[in-house]
């Protein structure tokens, strides 16, 4: 398509300018549309189709069509892994709620320094994901800083098994996704009408009652948004469970990766991916309805 160039004669015509404008708009949208269709839509469609195929001998997929991959999701082994993934994501989200709300409250009441404090929360989000996960490996492993210090202090004689367990995975997830909780909660606290708090206090509510009965209910939208924003990446996490959990804590992200690499069972890996995708989209639905951000 060519850029819609206006003809010299139609400068004054409003409707002509409208069509020309929409020509330019279409042209500008085309690359993104093509990109999303070719590299997001088509790949997801292929994976969806693969969920109904049979595993090829050397990887890949072959005929015939089957429902077996979906049925295997109910196997106790895989259902257990899916359940664990949900549990880990839910617990991480709960911890982020508990840690994130007071931090958001603190920032919203920090007066002129709010911008600085907010930046200190956002900054880690942009810092290398891999490096930050490695930082915890450095601290938690048997000869890591925590064990070394405890050993030097004579508090332990054997290194504590801090790394390669669910605790380490939870720690890594909370550390990484806490900012996703703080930001939306902060946004709702920021918009909150302060006269409501004063009214509650004037009517005799004690400070804790104000917090519990007024502030907390009013921050519900932010708490929900934050919970979804934390839960979704935690559910599909791969790098953190892989590096901090080791081989003992298999979650769905690791399982998917495994099916496409070592196990070479693409159809089953596809079924797992699409199940994960389904849950993510279901969870996103309430958010997209509330705020059409783009």
């Amino acid at each position: 398509m060519q850029p819609a160039v206006k003809q010299p004669g139609d400068q004054g015509a409003g409707d002509a300018s409208q069509t020309a404008n929409s020509g330019l708009r279409t042209l500008f949208l085309t690359p993104t549309a093509a990109l999303l269709l070719a590299l997001l839509g088509a790949p997801l469609a292929i994976v969806l189709a693969y969920t109904f195929r049979t595993r090829g001998t050397y990887g890949g997929v072959t005929a015939p069509w089957t429902l077996e991959n979906w049925q295997r999701l109910a196997d106790s082994l895989y259902a257990g892994i899916l359940f664990n993934s949900f549990a880990v994501a839910a617990v991480s989200t709960a911890i982020c709620l508990l840690l994130g709300f007071p931090l958001a409250l603190f920032i919203s009441r920090a007066g002129r320094r709010r911008g600085l404090y907010l930046h200190l929360v956002i900054l880690p989000f942009w810092t290398s994901f891999l490096v930050r996960t490695y930082a915890w490996m450095f601290l938690l492993r048997d000869t890591g800083l925590i064990n070394t210090v405890l050993f030097k202090l004579g508090l332990i004689s054997q290194p504590l098994p801090l790394l390669y367990n669910y605790g380490a995975v939870l720690l890594g997830l909370v550390y990484t996704y806490l900012p996703f909780m703080v930001l939306p909660v902060y946004a709702t606290l920021e918009r909150m009408d302060r006269t409501l708090l004063e009214a509650a206090a004037d009517l005799g509510a004690r400070p804790l009652q104000v917090l519990w009965r007024v502030v907390l209910p009013l921050s519900k939208p932010g708490l929900w948004a934050g919970s979804i924003l934390v839960f979704i990446p935690c559910l599909g996490a791969f790098l953190i469970p892989d590096l901090l959990g080791g081989g003992k804590t298999i979650l769905v992200g690791t399982l998917v990766q495994n099916q496409f690499t070592a196990s070479r069972d693409w159809p089953f890996g596809s079924a797992l991916s699409m199940a994960l995708m389904g849950v993510v989209l279901l969870l996103m639905l309430p958010l997209t309805r509330k705020s059409a951000s783009l």
Partner: peptide
Amino acid sequence: GLALSLVTPEIVMGIS
């Protein structure tokens, strides 16, 4: 589409 690219888990995007 853009929102979808944002919420698709990285591992799913990778394998797809």
